[in-house]
Amino acid sequence: MRIRVSRSFSAGAAAVAACGALLIAAPLGNAAAPTELSYTATGSTHLAGLEADVPLGPGPTEVELDLDTGNLTADISLPESTTEFNLFGFLPTHAKVKIDQVGELSGTYQDGIVNVSGEFSVRITEVGHFGFGIPMPDCETTAPVAITLTSDDSFLPAEGGTLTGTYHLPEFADCGVDTAIINALVVGPEHSISIDLAGAA
């Protein structure tokens, strides 16, 4: 006795086989693209040797966060800022400072805590007294400044939070007659930094 298979059944079987082949050939899953986050950065850094606070920002900060692994990268842009202090305790002085990111910031976001590290160049673009300033086009640290920033456990990616850290300044060069004074006052001590990241409303 012959068993006759209908054409429709044969076609259906072929379709199932084709789908099976596609499933075997296809990847099991695609990794989700990193989440892009935008913040406005403001804050300050305290120069221990001068007992001076340098305001930071406001400046844009762009972050890419992999929600699966917690890995992140960031780019921060800060404008030039001005600090005022009494040099040697009695001489009114101002300095203009420019901090630029060198390379990429990288770190992690785990359990509400951000840890991020990177390197920055620090330039002193002007120093003056009694409102008169002397430009310093080449006054810069002789090596990048390594900074690690950490939040507490309340950082929210959509809203932001505060990052803090400490760092050491290497020597400055090409600051003219002020090079030795600058290095004597700011090189080496543990300086503190605080950055507030506010998410876009």
Score class of each variant (00 low, 15 high):
127 V>I: 11
197 L>A: 03
6 S>M: 09
65 L>Q: 01
27 P>F: 09
109 Y>D: 11
170 P>Y: 00
55 P>G: 04
37 L>N: 12
197 L>K: 03
165 G>K: 10
45 T>S: 01
201 A>P: 07
46 H>I: 05
60 P>R: 01
104 E>S: 03
196 D>R: 11
27 P>Q: 00
93 T>Q: 05
158 A>D: 15
14 A>M: 00
135 P>W: 13
193 I>R: 10
26 A>I: 02
149 L>S: 08
64 E>I: 12
40 T>Q: 03
172 F>A: 05
49 G>L: 12
175 C>N: 14
69 T>K: 06
92 P>L: 09
112 G>D: 07
52 A>L: 08
156 L>K: 13
100 D>N: 15
16 V>T: 07
153 D>G: 08
91 L>H: 06
160 G>M: 04
49 G>E: 08
43 G>K: 05
81 S>Q: 07
181 I>T: 12
144 P>S: 08
25 A>G: 09
1 M>S: 14
57 G>L: 05
71 N>R: 04
112 G>M: 14
168 H>N: 08
122 V>M: 06
142 T>F: 01
95 A>D: 01
43 G>M: 00
134 I>G: 10
10 S>G: 13
201 A>S: 02
29 G>M: 07
98 K>T: 15
128 G>Q: 03
131 G>N: 12
116 V>Y: 05
191 H>V: 02
60 P>F: 05
17 A>T: 09
49 G>P: 11
176 G>K: 05
19 C>F: 13
153 D>M: 03
154 S>L: 05
119 E>C: 13
102 V>K: 14
4 R>I: 10
165 G>V: 10
105 L>R: 09
122 V>Y: 10
68 D>T: 01
115 N>E: 14
26 A>Q: 10
116 V>L: 04
145 V>S: 06
157 P>H: 13
97 V>C: 06
175 C>Y: 11
155 F>S: 03
62 E>R: 07
173 A>W: 02
100 D>F: 15
137 P>K: 14
125 T>D: 07
47 L>S: 02
168 H>L: 06
59 G>R: 07
192 S>I: 10
90 F>H: 04
136 M>P: 07
32 A>L: 12
142 T>G: 09
